[in-house]
């Protein structure tokens, strides 16, 4: 009878660990991680290690979830820099296509649970802007090809999704570039 509670807690620990691995929703995973810390701390107390249990509660179920919450809420913005020069475009057809482009982008952003943040009139080279200001996408218009050109980082997974969703449209071209000198 005395072994019943530790055994149940160990089974619960395995279930929570599997749930952390297989779940898709980020904030739910954070809740699972902190409950994993609580169950582990209870097991430490039952095995006569109260010192380790205090450290596990403080680090595993308070500080690490807080850091994860911050890191994830930081990634919820999708910053688009608009560099289309509307004075040079006289064709109404292209204006219509520009509106259509933004409808596609809105759909894409909603689908990925992000917030779109469009800014314009910022000067500087594309590479510097993506590293300094953390811009995700740069929209510009090429007059020779008559195409909208979307530029973004090659390392971003969102760019892969965007390529998959927009390759059917003939007036959109996606260019990816490598980030400058990375550490590795």
């Amino acid at each position: 009878m005395n072994d019943l509670i530790p055994t149940l807690l160990q089974i619960l620990l395995i279930i929570i660990a599997l749930a952390i691995v297989f779940h898709k929703e980020n904030f739910t995973i954070i809740i699972y991680i902190s409950s994993f810390g609580l169950v582990a701390a209870t097991l430490y107390v039952l095995n006569q290690a109260p010192d380790v249990a205090i450290a596990e509660v403080a680090i595993g179920s308070a500080i690490i979830p807080l850091i994860y919450v911050i890191s994830i809420s930081r990634q919820r913005e999708f910053i688009v820099l608009d560099r289309v020069d509307h004075d040079l475009i006289n064709d109404e057809l292209i204006d219509e296509k520009n509106v259509e482009l933004y409808q596609i982008l809105n759909k894409f952003v909603d689908h990925n649970d992000l917030k779109m943040n469009v800014c314009a009139n910022i000067k500087g080279s594309d590479e510097d802007l993506t590293t300094d200001l953390n811009v995700d996408l740069i929209v510009s218009f090429d007059h020779e090809k008559q195409k909208f050109i979307l530029k973004g980082k090659q390392s971003s997974i969102l760019m892969d999704h965007l390529i998959k969703e927009t390759f059917t449209y003939d007036y959109i071209e996606i260019v990816t570039f490598k980030e400058g000198e990375s550490i590795d």
Binding site: I54, A58, I63
Partner: peptide, 14 residues
């Protein structure tokens, strides 16, 4: 009592 510098420091940080 159970505890010490590291554990207490983590609680104060929280």
């Amino acid at each position: 009592s159970p505890g010490g510098g590291f554990q207490g420091g983590a609680i104060v940080a929280t």
